[in-house]
Simulated assay, not measured.
Amino acid sequence: MANDVTKVGVPVTGFIGLAPFGTDIPSPSEGGVIGFTLPAAYKVPGLFTTDGAPEWAMEADGDPIEFFQEGFSIPSGLANVTISVTLAQTDPVVRELTRGKTYDANGYMTVDGGGTDVKYVAFTEIIFKNGAIERRVAPNVSIQSVTEQRNTRGEVRGTEVVFNVSRSEELDNDHFAEWNTLAVAAAG
Rank of each mutant, 00 (worst) to 15 (best):
N130S: 03
F15D: 03
N130V: 03
R157A: 06
S84Y: 00
I25K: 02
A177Y: 05
P64A: 05
N164C: 14
E125V: 02
I126E: 07
G154H: 14
V93R: 01
V33L: 11
T110E: 12
E170V: 12
F72M: 14
L18E: 05
Q89Y: 09
V5H: 15
R136P: 11
V184A: 13
L47G: 13
N180M: 05
I127Q: 13
P75T: 02
N180C: 07
N151A: 15
L182T: 15
R95C: 11
S168Q: 07
Q69C: 09
N164V: 06
I143V: 11
S145V: 03
P28I: 05
T116N: 09
R99S: 06
M1F: 14
A41T: 09
G14R: 08
F21E: 08
T90N: 15
M109P: 04
A187Q: 06
T82I: 09
V162F: 00
E30N: 10
E70C: 01
F15Y: 14
D63E: 10
P64Q: 01
Y103W: 13
L171V: 01
G46F: 03
G31E: 02
V146I: 08
S145T: 02
E96C: 03
P11Q: 10
P20D: 10
G107D: 12
E160A: 06
N180Y: 01
A53R: 11
R153G: 12
A79C: 11
D91S: 07
S145W: 01
G14K: 03
A122D: 04
A185E: 12
A88D: 07
G14M: 02
G17Y: 00
D61Q: 09
G14E: 02
Y103A: 06
E169Y: 12
D51V: 08
G113P: 07
G113A: 13
A122G: 13
I83D: 00
G131D: 02
T181A: 02
F72T: 07
P45F: 01
V10P: 13
T23D: 05
S76C: 03
F123H: 12
D4K: 10
I74C: 09
L182F: 15
